[in-house]
Design a binder for these strands. Structure first.
Lengths: 339, 339
DNA sequence: TTGTAAGCGTTATCAA
DNA sequence: TTGATAACGCTTACAA
């Protein structure tokens, strides 16, 4: 690895001059010299030393993707598809803009603090943080910070976030279900906070808005594991046999529930209708094809990086809540019934 | 961000002494001083500056996960589940061992070279490299390098690789298919190189080993997009109506084909049997549950990091080809038929 | 046991 | 237009 100093002595100039042509400050150096130096730079395949640059400039050009561990792969079948696609898209956006992507997952705020300040991380894309941990993160990290799918109550104007219309998607799906004649609908989620809570509220409000009584909508909290989904599905069938539609907070739950229903000899959508959320790839693999709410993970990532880099490079950039649209994706898993 | 020098002047000692206690070289410093310094370190929440350490020690403690772009998310539905799980598991393994994970995807070897040397990356986990690009990578990067799912012909002893028994898995699956009475089997892949070629060879050899004539096995090359899978499935049905079993090189293709078959009114496994490879999560979501070959992506990542870190920390560590076992996962998508 | 000082590869200030 | 030089924060001989 050749250094600036070495190249300087090869050409017979000072390191400063070499540095200047490398950084394109060509107006500060004569064309002849610039060309001579450029030649050497290329001949020796010069690559700048990032540690040295970072030390001197007190930054890093790295963007950290930090995930709160409870959202992480492995203990949660719902997340890994999403996370994989997200990371892939983040990498592309980050690289495109001349930055580098470091990944770090932890629930320990002290660890995260130490990670980001040790590396002098220029900006963070944060996933899976509760309101509480988001507050802490914002306190310990004073540089640009963009959350993905965060919910921050009344503090929203203080946080940069890119999310989707969780509420509206669920509202419209529920409206659709009602329009198709369903009058007993069960909603399933593994939690009722943040985006999933918003989806639940959309569900509830659509029922209200349709003038239906509140006992038209049932709420089920399911465990993340496969067994938990099975239990949820069996519970609803036993407790509320009149339920004609199942609305899951995510496609992966919906798809896995479809398998379980099939095992029970229950036909979809003839015996019961199923709706999902996210429009994951499986949604169009499975039969019947899943009716769901479509969101774009890739776009989420791209927008998050775009906003983050804007904040890094333009100090006046303000925090912003960005809400991406969702669309109803009507396929074959919901049946029209006589009300 | 407090520095060693600042803490030194606070305690009234030299930076060296502070540095020593921070790095646990406590035998070189008196207990009283050590304690006093330790206290200040904690009081000020000292976090070391990675750029400075890296510059001084000429390393980085970062492990790069570099993907050849042709394997990357987005243009290939097969890969993103796998990649997501892999990255998650890599992150855990890397962090556990005191390293950091940087992600970089490119097909341009010059870009990759510049990335790794600029950051002084300590070691690389490489995914999706052809034999040719693997050779180039090995030439431009002289530090520890572990491939995932690479195939290196006769050069294997020169490369560290963690892969799976691609050949044996396909061999056993095909054996199983034959045992179940299937005599016309079609094999589908989007490529016939590396691991997928090995799977194809396992398929072919099992047919030979069973004493069947070579026209018992058909080979189909499909496009990666959904349309391509559809075309492949339709082709086989038209060209070889006697085919009773479809063996896909990956679960995602298998699952997507199951949907397409269902659209065609073809029942699985009654009309036709389907087998997959990988044991992706969808394999147990779908109905009938998919009979497949099980591999562990998480284990792949863990072993890869383990080997890589061993190579980084122990110079005598030799390149090694690690082949993880696969097991037949018999479920419900293959029917026993009368031969 | 503790401290001095050089060095890692850049950037940036200021002088020539 | 070019070049010295200090500085970034740390490690590491080597000296005291």
């Amino acid at each position: 690895m050749i250094t600036i100093k070495e190249m300087a002595s090869i050409v017979g100039v000072s390191p400063t001059t070499v540095s200047n042509v490398i950084r394109g400050k060509t107006k500060e150096v004569s064309p002849e010299l610039a060309e001579k130096i450029q030649k050497v730079v290329e001949e020796y395949n010069y690559v700048p030393n990032r540690s040295a640059i970072n030390l001197a400039k007190n930054n890093s050009n790295v963007i950290g993707f930090v995930m709160s561990t409870n959202s992480v792969l492995y203990d949660n079948i719902v997340q890994d598809f999403f996370t994989g696609e997200l990371i892939g898209a983040l990498e592309i956006g980050v690289r495109k803009r001349g930055y580098f992507l470091m990944i770090y997952s932890s629930d320990d705020m002290e660890e995260i603090r130490s990670f980001v300040s040790s590396w002098n991380i220029d900006g963070i894309v944060a996933l899976g943080f509760s309101y509480e941990s988001a507050q802490i993160l914002k306190n310990i990290y004073k540089k640009p910070l963009v959350f993905i799918d965060g919910y921050f109550l009344n503090d929203e104007h203080q946080y940069s976030n890119v999310g989707i219309e969780d509420y509206r998607g669920a509202f419209e799906m529920t409206q659709y279900l009602i329009r198709e004649g369903h009058r007993k609908i069960a909603f399933f989620s593994d939690n009722y906070i943040g985006g999933d809570y918003a989806r639940y509220m959309g569900f509830l409000d659509a029922i209200k808005a349709a003038g239906l009584s509140s006992d038209c909508g049932y709420k089920y909290k399911i465990e993340k594991k496969l067994d938990g989904i099975k239990k949820g599905v069996e519970d609803v069938i036993r407790e509320h046999p009149k339920v004609s539609a199942l609305f899951f907070c995510s496609d992966n739950y919906a798809v896995s529930a479809m398998g379980i229903l099939s095992d029970l000899g229950i036909k979809i959508p003839d015996d019961i209708s199923v709706a999902g959320y996210d429009d994951a790839i499986v949604a169009s693999f499975i039969r019947p094809k899943l009716t769901t709410v479509k969101q774009s993970t890739g776009e989420k990532a791209e927008i998050a990086v775009e906003k983050l880099v804007a904040m890094i490079e333009n100090k006046t950039e303000k925090p912003e809540k960005i809400t991406l649209p969702v669309t109803l994706q009507v396929r074959d898993s919901v049946k029209k019934i006589e009300a």
